[in-house]
């Protein structure tokens, strides 16, 4: 569940393995967390499984593709019959060439659906960046943010430093300015 409020503890790890272990531990604790990192690789995704078993993007892509194929066939046949002109001795509804258009539209609408569902589930585009985000998370450090009320923050800070976080700091509810201006 994404952290809607920006209050909690954020840690920055230099080593990916430590970061993975800390994130796993934080996930087990049931707290609302968010992990940042410059690298998107399958291994981490399988390990941390941030989403439900199946990623919703796949379903939407399939639906988009089927819609595209059906729409193409409907379009070509209806348009050919709307003003039936005989061409080169070919039948009015000559489906072989229509199949090509059907394939193209299938791929087209599948891509649109895929992009649409990705942007929806990744909640992009966002104009403001989350408070916990540090510029170095995009370069070489891995970040972990744990949403917790101030009283537990202290405990989480010790735990994170114990797990090898390079730096840990507290986040109070500071909304960022427009167009993603991260503070240094």
């Amino acid at each position: 569940m994404p952290p809607d409020y920006f209050v909690g503890v954020c840690a920055s790890f230099a080593d990916q393995k430590l970061w993975r272990a800390a994130t796993l531990a934080a996930q087990d604790s049931g707290q609302a967390i968010e992990a940042y990192g410059p690298v998107a690789d399958e291994a981490t995704m399988r390990l941390l499984r941030p989403h439900s078993p199946q990623n919703p993007v796949r379903l939407w892509t399939l639906l988009g593709g089927m819609f595209g194929g059906f729409a193409a066939f409907a379009m070509t046949i209806w348009m050919s019959r709307d003003w039936p002109l005989v061409v080169g001795g070919k039948p009015i509804v000559s489906w072989p060439p229509f199949i090509c258009i059907c394939f193209e539209m299938t791929v087209l609408f599948a891509s649109f659906a895929c992009m649409g569902s990705f942007l929806a589930y990744a909640r992009l585009p966002q104009l403001t960046l989350p408070a916990a985000y540090r510029p170095e998370f995009a370069v070489d450090h891995f970040g972990l943010f744990i949403a917790c009320a101030p009283p537990e923050a202290e405990r989480w800070q010790q735990q994170l430093t114990a797990e090898g976080a390079q730096q840990v700091w507290r986040i109070e509810n500071q909304p960022r300015g427009r167009l993603a201006l991260p503070t240094f």
């Binding site: 005989v86 061409v87 080169g88 001795g89 070919k90």
Partner: peptide
């Protein structure tokens, strides 16, 4: 021609039977 090769390649039905 009845099976005119020029007709089925015209994209805008300018050539048709």
């Amino acid at each position: 021609c009845d099976n005119a090769p020029c007709e089925y390649v015209c994209p805008t039905f300018a050539a048709y039977h």
